[in-house]
């Protein structure tokens, strides 16, 4: 069944139809939550909560991009979670081992198909990027994640974050600039990343 038909069925209360949409979008939703929250458990909880909220309010979906609509739900859920976390700032930013020590290369970053060197490089890269994303204000972070990580276009992001197109454009530019400044600190750690000068821009 195609997506609009599944959405229509879900709007009539068909949970099975909605679950097929969940399976289709759960990686994207989880990934967005993970990049915004920087914590796997919190991201999983936020993704689950977002899907529950989405099913409850799917009657209010008026067409357009369903992915953008779902991402709006998960982004709002993440904002709520971040607000709660800021009120109770007890969560460490780095994942921890069973003994309570911070993991240099978190287990959840591992990909068995990569060589140890590639894995290390990728882990470091991901760690560095996530660290730089975490330095951004929440709304800037969401914009850069939605455009550069999830590949949404500006108009979709504008609907997700409920801000005008011009605001999205300027926030994205400033967020990229901030990330770029932050990544300068990892230049030696991540030499391959900055060997891009020769690549064509467009």
């Amino acid at each position: 069944m195609d997506e609009p038909a599944l959405i229509r069925e879900a709007q009539h209360g068909d949970l099975d139809a909605f679950n097929r949409l969940v399976i289709q979008y759960q990686d994207c939703v989880f990934n967005t939550a993970l990049r915004v929250l920087s914590d796997e458990e919190m991201a999983a909880d936020a993704a689950q909560e977002a899907f529950i909220k989405a099913f409850r309010s799917i009657g209010s979906f008026r067409g357009g991009s369903f992915k953008a609509w779902l991402l709006r739900t998960v982004t709002n859920t993440c904002y709520d979670e971040l607000r709660r976390t800021k009120r109770r700032p007890t969560v460490a930013l780095e994942p921890e081992t069973g003994e309570g020590e911070e993991m240099d290369t978190p287990r959840w970053l591992a990909d068995p198909s990569l060589s140890p060197e590639e894995k290390f490089e990728l882990d470091e890269l991901e760690h560095a990027i996530q660290h730089c994303l975490d330095q951004l204000p929440d709304e800037f972070k969401a914009v850069v994640i939605l455009v550069d990580v999830e590949g949404l276009d500006y108009s979709e992001v504008s609907k997700v974050v409920r801000r005008p197109l011009g605001t999205v454009k300027s926030r994205l530019a400033r967020a990229r600039l901030k990330v770029q400044e932050c990544l300068q600190a990892f230049k030696e750690l991540l030499p391959t990343i900055f060997r891009l000068e020769d690549e064509p821009i467009l």
Binding site: D27, F30, L34, R35, D111, Q130, V144, V179, L183, I193
Partner: peptide, 11 residues
């Protein structure tokens, strides 16, 4: 660089 951020699968 941002586009190299790997996409994670849902746990």
């Amino acid at each position: 660089v941002l586009r190299r951020l790997p996409s994670r699968k849902a746990p």
